[in-house]
Design a protein around this nucleic acid. Sequence first.
DNA 1: CCGAAATTGTACCGATTGGTACAATGAGTC
DNA 2: GACTCATTGTACCAATCGGTACAATTTCGG
Lengths: 189, 189
Amino acid sequence: MRRIAPDRDGLLAMIGEIFREHGYEGASLALIGAATGLGKGSLYHFFPGGKEEMAGAVIAHIDGWFEDNVFAPLRDRADPLTGIEQMLDATDSYFRSGRRVCLIGAFALDESRDLFADQIGSYFGRWVVHLAGALERSGHRAGEAGELAEEAVAAIQGALTLARAANDLDVFSRALRRLRMRLGLRAKV
Amino acid sequence: MRRIAPDRDGLLAMIGEIFREHGYEGASLALIGAATGLGKGSLYHFFPGGKEEMAGAVIAHIDGWFEDNVFAPLRDRADPLTGIEQMLDATDSYFRSGRRVCLIGAFALDESRDLFADQIGSYFGRWVVHLAGALERSGHRAGEAGELAEEAVAAIQGALTLARAANDLDVFSRALRRLRMRLGLRAKV
DNA sequence: CCGAAATTGTACCGATTGGTACAATGAGTC
DNA sequence: GACTCATTGTACCAATCGGTACAATTTCGG
């Protein structure tokens, strides 16, 4: 049986927060070391590829979380609206109602995109595709479902940007509430 | 009469592209020097405050462009729909149909936000407020206009992120086309 | 308890970071 | 031509960057 390094999930989560807050360039090994309590020796032991491998692993980690908690419900739920509801709840919880920012979205903006273009493209691409699938099964025509899905994912990203720019979390909750209705769910209790 | 440094606008534009592509941390003085053809001597002559002053001036420069080409039409046009149309055209042209990314939006995401929080907040805040005003004058109820304006600005930011993530400019044009209809304009020719 | 492997701390590397100092040059004014 | 002030190139600074080397230590199965 493969022995997993102790709490690799927790490690990736901590490193992820540094990348999330400081960006790829801004996340120095000193910051990462301070946040994790690990010296360079340990960090390069777990990630021989250095900073780039760390960032790639963090992206994969986040991607896995979304695969399980967002994409899978959209794809597998018998009732597509239930899947969509689950996506919105998971999204709200992941981004801590707007307190957190989307690391993968942030990476998409600057030059670090080039290093992780495939992972970034796949993450957003699958989000849109699976949401479009659920929308189609919930009664939308194919083309319309695709556009609506793209609009919804973009709305989430934009709301995160705006919420942080305005330093106002309500921006994000308002966006999610609008999405809920727009995607065919009744207003939340 | 005040003697303006030769082509300060052009200088800020060049520096702005570096910040846009590499982010605040990633934009090194070496890159900025290479892009502008200026050595440190000149750069620190024009911006004694160093990198931070450069970024601040770049933000102000962009803000001024939006004030003239986006906010002013929204505020001053007699026909609000003409103003909105002008906003969308200016936006499409500024972001080069999605080839360019929003520097201010990118700054909002990482820690560099703290340095420029006021400028960033004002930029997006005024965008939303003036768009909301135009929407209200075009017949929307006040609250609804505010939400729609917020939704529209977020949609633009999100579309820029998504377009770059997918490396597909059509994502941005589709978003603008949807906005056009959603904000009360007839489909474009 | 032993040996092997996983893990860690520390010292070190060359390169680059943002920033400063300053002398040389530029151009325009009297 | 002399004076002034804007502009520039160069040398330099301490600090930090990402990364490497490696010996010391832990950990753990046998």
